[in-house]
Design a binder for these strands. Sequence first.
DNA 1: TATCATTTGTTCGTATGTATC
DNA 2: CGATACATACGAACAAATGAT
Lengths: 258, 258
Amino acid sequence: MAGIERPGPLYQQVADAIRRGIASGDYPPGSPLPSEAQLIERYEVSRPTVRNAISALRSEGLIEVRHGKGSFVKSVATPLLTVERTITRTGTAYAVGSIPWEQAHEPTGYRTQTTSETGPLLALDEGEALFGTDRTLIDPRTGARALHRTLIPFSTADRVPALAENPGAPIEEVYGAMAEAGHKLTWSETVRARMPQADERTALELPDATPVIHTLRVTQGARSEPLILEELRASGSQAQLTYRITADTARQRPTARS
Amino acid sequence: MAGIERPGPLYQQVADAIRRGIASGDYPPGSPLPSEAQLIERYEVSRPTVRNAISALRSEGLIEVRHGKGSFVKSVATPLLTVERTITRTGTAYAVGSIPWEQAHEPTGYRTQTTSETGPLLALDEGEALFGTDRTLIDPRTGARALHRTLIPFSTADRVPALAENPGAPIEEVYGAMAEAGHKLTWSETVRARMPQADERTALELPDATPVIHTLRVTQGARSEPLILEELRASGSQAQLTYRITADTARQRPTARS
DNA sequence: TATCATTTGTTCGTATGTATC
DNA sequence: CGATACATACGAACAAATGAT
């Protein structure tokens, strides 16, 4: 029926036809695709071919398949949650972003050690002792989830009594405690994207073909020495991060030549 | 041979066995997995089952499959390219990041219009005229690619003659031209992650199961009015972005201008 | 250069299990 | 319960890419 005679694998031709149907609005967001049996009839191909085509669309994040129900076009205009990665200060009181997250449950505190990844960021050897606190955050409006982790080295807590007492305090209070202990704080943050691990997929309730956006934030003292490390993981399709950038005046001699 | 009798689908049991082999170091990064024929023999399952297992590992980003050659464990310690999203200023001269990108080819200039996505970011209606410039950037050390786009509204170029003359200039020069025209610049940037479109997959030379990290940077004038828009897209597995954050003292109340 | 064995890719067929309504 | 829909699993054949002969 539909003109499927162009080159390329059969299943890609079927996938192309469905892609066009989605793009043209024949299958609007949220609507079901024809069932496998119907696609077999319509394009006169076998079941494996149809399933291969569906599998391709799935891994592109175009559709979502629900066992026993059918395949559905994903809504492109996903309501995005914007996470402000800015920090404001009033005296020694800090405020982080502007989203009032809810906590899925009480934060989990534990003791752990630096790894090959976290060690260098904290300028510590591997195997140094850390306080860890994990939180599952939920945005009340969209239901979007995020995983937040705070890692506080013992060496940092030693110099800030309030931290040693309560390393699992909300992060604003952690910043405040460090500021009151005389630290002048700056932060540096790295962002990357990757496919989720199995446990992240369940914890963040991620659908198929959705990447995780993963940030590591290092809190630094006056001499740029790392004090604590935070980790935030969220659904790349649901959440976006925002940063404010101001031009640093280059008083140190510029190393870049162009 | 390997104890495969636990519950769950057969192909997942095979995938689990291979996952364990990767985790335990039996299959170190870069090394080939057994061929499909060998996996069929070892686990005594059919070819579709083996292929299903491999497909699962593939979509998790654990392995990479090359036609005619075999399946290979992806190197976990991918050499990451760090893209500094900071800006430094010396007088009216700006420097962006610290990576000396190479250009794959001459930048492509064109005229276009605001869309439903770019319009709001530039505080313009849909359909306003823009200068566009596209670049394909290549990091000479890692070969990692990135796509950069600059969008300059006519209304901005009108007030900065240097921009109207050469809207495709390097972005540092664009900043400099705006500064010399009397604008005091700040930037705000949003980051998100998603699966690539087919054209992005080829342009960025992305392997399977690698997300795209996508940033939108708005250059703002003294009254926070948007002046130009930049877009950067890069491989989420190869590239990571870094930001520096300093605490804003909260004397101004946050402008809810959205 | 051409051929061949190996390995993955595509496509058909068929049967049964499991989730949803 | 039954009808529909997707998930899993087996078997078989040929195509296409790769590397070595």
